[in-house]
Design a binder for these strands. Structure first.
Length: 306
DNA sequence: TAGCAGGAAAATC
DNA sequence: GATTTTCCTGCT
């Protein structure tokens, strides 16, 4: 297998470490100065040196264009960050994690990964994802050692439930397999989602997933993650427990007293109706790049909470 | 709509 | 070493 080495000259703000350690993606592993990951079907290692991004990929297909697209380096981050700096809270988060970018990841990988994220923390999510990749992903070689691609929907649809459970998925195993079967059966069409507006894309995603009235394990939060991290809907605003607590703490005026009270409880839980209410509130507040605000606030909340 | 279960691992005490 | 929490969803 041939490998490809190249260096990107970074034009705008970019911080590789923040970007890969922000809970958007679960397969990147840091070894020394390099980050090792899998983009599409090829291995890739990247390292940032100031204004440069050094890359080495195990596949001809993973070239400058592919890396630029993956990290969205052709988009100007500066005006986006300026547009979300609506208050001191988010402005401080932007300053602290300056250069964090949203990644354009594969839709199927994104959906499957966040489906596994329920009731789990990030280290555990990484373990589960890694386990199904090793068990079901196609193997290739890079730098003399094997790496696994993310499993195809077909390979997971045909998996034995007990084998998935053995990967540490627990009750998530049946959710994942059923979603995989839906993809294989053509009940879910990802290709049109980026072209639609946020509202329509979300409705279509949830309808296609839920239309068959089977237990699928994909609700509004997972849908928002898919729309934001893999469909280019930058106005999507996934609300997880960290963000919910942050909103209750610092954005009470936006939510109203009753929601603040509910979110301030021990478990910051939102029903579907409240989720949409909070979601539309923050989306109109932060604007068309609300998803970036979410990602910066998430990082800030996680740092201060830990 | 509010309450609860779900499996297992990490974080916390 | 026990308890609590964990980037949530579906059922009752």
């Amino acid at each position: 297998m041939s490998s490809l080495e190249f260096t990107l000259e970074l034009e705008g703000p970019f911080n590789l470490n923040f970007t890969l350690d922000s809970g958007q993606v679960f397969r990147w592993e840091r070894r020394g100065e390099w980050w090792y990951g899998v983009v599409r079907d090829g291995a890739l290692k990247v390292m940032q040196e100031g204004e440069r991004l050094r890359c080495s990929s195990g596949s001809e297909a993973i070239d400058i264009a592919a890396v630029t697209r993956y990290f969205r380096l052709d988009e100007d981050l500066q005006p986006i960050l300026a547009s979300i700096a609506k208050d001191e809270k988010v402005t401080k988060a932007v300053e602290r994690f300056y250069g964090l970018r949203l990644i354009r990841q594969d839709v199927w990988e994104c959906l499957a990964s966040f489906l596994l994220a329920t009731n789990a923390n990030i280290p555990r999510i990484k373990k589960m994802v890694s386990a199904i990749c090793e068990r079901y992903g196609e193997k290739s070689e890079y730098e003399g050692s094997a790496f696994s691609r993310f499993p195809t929907a077909a390979s997971l649809a045909g998996a034995r439930l007990e084998d998935l459970v053995r990967c540490g998925l627990g009750y998530r195993a049946s959710f994942l397999r059923r979603v995989a079967q839906s993809v294989v059966d053509g009940r879910i069409d990802f290709s049109q989602l980026p072209r639609m507006g946020y509202e329509e894309a979300k409705r279509v995603l949830l309808t296609e997933l839920l239309g068959e009235k089977v237990l699928l394990g994909v609700g509004p939060k997972v849908a928002d993650c898919v729309l934001l991290f893999s469909c280019g809907h930058d106005d999507a605003f996934p609300i997880d427990v960290w963000i919910a607590r942050e909103l209750a703490k610092s954005y009470g005026g936006l939510l109203g007293p009753s929601l603040v009270k509910r979110l301030s409880g021990e478990t910051a839980k939102l029903g579907p109706r409240d989720y949409e209410k909070v979601s539309s509130g923050v989306r109109s507040y932060f604007g068309q790049y609300a998803g970036y605000a979410q990602q910066y606030l998430f990082m800030a909340a996680r740092e201060s909470g830990a």
